[in-house]
Computed example of a mutant assay.
Amino acid sequence: MSVFASLVEHLADLLQPLFGASAAAAAIILFTALVRLLVHPLSRAAARGQKARTRLQPRIAELRRKHAKNPEKLQRAVLELHAEEKVSPLSGCLPSLCQIPAFFLLYHLFSSSTIGGEVNGLLSHQLLAAPLGGRWADAFGDGGLLGGAGLVYVALFAVVAGVATFSYRLTRRTMADRPVLPAGDAGAVPGVGALTRVMPFMSFFTLVTVAVVPLAAALYVVTSTTWSAVERAVLYR
Rank of each mutant, 00 (worst) to 15 (best):
S91Q: 13
P190F: 03
M199P: 00
C93L: 15
Q16C: 12
A12C: 06
A5D: 12
E72H: 07
T32R: 03
A194P: 00
S113T: 13
T114Q: 15
L145H: 01
V3C: 00
N120T: 08
G143C: 03
R169H: 12
P17A: 07
A129S: 14
G121E: 11
A77S: 14
F140G: 03
V230P: 00
P182C: 07
R135T: 13
F166H: 09
E231C: 10
V234T: 09
A183Y: 01
Q16S: 15
G191M: 02
A211S: 05
S96R: 06
P200A: 02
L38V: 15
S96W: 11
L170K: 08
S113Q: 14
L81R: 04
F166T: 06
F31N: 06
E85W: 07
V192M: 05
A155V: 03
A211D: 05
A229E: 10
G141E: 01
D185N: 15
L128K: 01
V212D: 03
K73D: 12
T165Q: 08
W136A: 14
A158T: 01
A137H: 14
L14H: 09
L151A: 01
L123I: 13
A218T: 02
R135N: 12
W136V: 14
I28N: 02
G121L: 13
L15P: 07
L170Q: 15
A46M: 05
H82Q: 12
T174Y: 00
A217H: 02
A77F: 11
F166A: 13
A229T: 13
A229M: 12
P95I: 07
R59H: 07
V8I: 15
S203L: 06
R172Y: 01
Y107R: 11
D13Y: 04
A149P: 09
K69A: 15
P101Y: 06
Q99G: 11
R48L: 12
Y153E: 00
A183D: 14
E231Y: 01
R48P: 00
R64M: 15
A130D: 08
F140Q: 06
Q57Y: 00
R59A: 14
